[in-house]
Amino acid sequence: MQTGTPNASYALAERRKEGWSVTFRSVPYDAQRAADCAARYQRDDWARALKTGWFEDSPG
Rank of each mutant, 00 (worst) to 15 (best):
P6L: 02
F55S: 08
G4Q: 08
S21T: 06
C37L: 09
T5N: 10
S26V: 07
W46D: 03
N7S: 08
F24V: 08
P28Y: 10
A34N: 08
R15L: 13
P28R: 08
P6A: 08
L50F: 08
S26E: 15
F24D: 12
M1N: 10
Y29M: 00
K51L: 15
A47I: 02
P59E: 10
E18H: 14
M1V: 07
T5H: 04
V22D: 12
D57R: 15
A39S: 12
E14F: 13
T5D: 12
E14W: 04
R33D: 04
P59F: 09
T23V: 04
R16H: 13
D44C: 00
D36P: 02
A47E: 02
S58T: 10
S21F: 07
A38Y: 14
R15E: 10
D45K: 03
W54R: 11
S9P: 00
Y10W: 15
F24N: 13
W54L: 02
W20M: 08
D30R: 04
A35Q: 02
A38T: 01
V22A: 05
E18F: 06
G60V: 00
G19W: 10
R48N: 09
T5S: 15
R33C: 02
R40A: 12
G19N: 08
E18G: 11
T23W: 11
V22T: 13
N7Q: 12
A35D: 04
A13D: 09
D44S: 12
W54A: 01
P59R: 09
W46Y: 11
D45H: 05
V22P: 00
Y29G: 01
R15F: 05
V27N: 11
G60S: 01
T52H: 08
A11Y: 08
T52P: 03
G53Q: 03
D45Y: 07
Q2T: 01
L12W: 10
A13I: 15
Q2F: 02
Q42W: 07
A35R: 01
L12F: 09
N7G: 00
P6V: 03
